[in-house]
Design a protein around this nucleic acid. Structure first.
Length: 172
DNA sequence: AGTTTGATTGTTGTT
DNA sequence: AACAACAATCAAACT
């Protein structure tokens, strides 16, 4: 088993792995954590979705307006490099892993479009427990993002005019 | 040659 | 409550 030392960073102590939170019902593992229970409320919703997953609608139709096919990014140029971008969702992390495998099985396909389709299909087939792994990562990232955003705002309010002060960046 | 689109789901923010 | 927009990514496509 490859031991991915992913825990290299931050040892927030906290043995609270988000995964635990995601596992609302552990058969044998019953930890009566009175207060620390379910930090992620979305877990229930997600689980339900995963289990039900049975969507009768074979054709999803946007009830409202047509979907803007092109409206994601106009210019990838730097708008604000300091601004933290939204963290990838669980699905995106899954994509990262899936992509590698997919490319091995299908070296012919290189574009993400095709992979995305396959990923989406499999994603829906995946069970909640399997998804939890990715949800866990996404949740953690979101927390970090939230913190980064707060700091970013704080710094911005503090004075964005303040040029590199703590970091000696003499680029020019 | 450089910019844009296209496709996937999830999360968040706005109304 | 529900929609809108954006997150990564890479190749094809367009200008």
């Amino acid at each position: 088993m490859a031991k991915k030392a992913t825990k290299s960073r931050k040892s927030r102590s906290s043995s609270t792995t988000a995964a635990s939170a995601y596992n609302p019902s552990t058969p044998s593992n019953e930890k009566p954590d009175r207060k620390m229970v379910l930090r992620v409320k979305s877990s229930e919703k997600m689980k339900r979705s995963a289990q039900q997953s049975v969507v009768s609608e074979r054709e999803k139709r946007p009830k409202s307006k047509s979907r803007p096919k092109s409206k994601q990014k106009k210019k990838k140029t730097k708008i604000d490099a300091k601004m933290p971008k939204k963290p990838p969702t669980a699905f995106f992390y899954f994509l990262e892993d899936f992509r590698k495998e997919f490319q091995e099985q299908n070296p012919d396909i290189k574009s993400m479009r095709d992979i995305g389709k396959a990923c989406g299909e499999k994603w829906k087939l995946m069970t909640y427990e399997e998804k939890v792994k990715y949800y866990d990562i996404a949740t953690e990232k979101r927390a970090e993002f939230d913190r980064a955003m707060a700091e970013y705002i704080r710094r911005k309010e503090s004075g964005e005019d303040q040029e590199t002060e703590d970091d000696s960046e003499f680029d020019e």
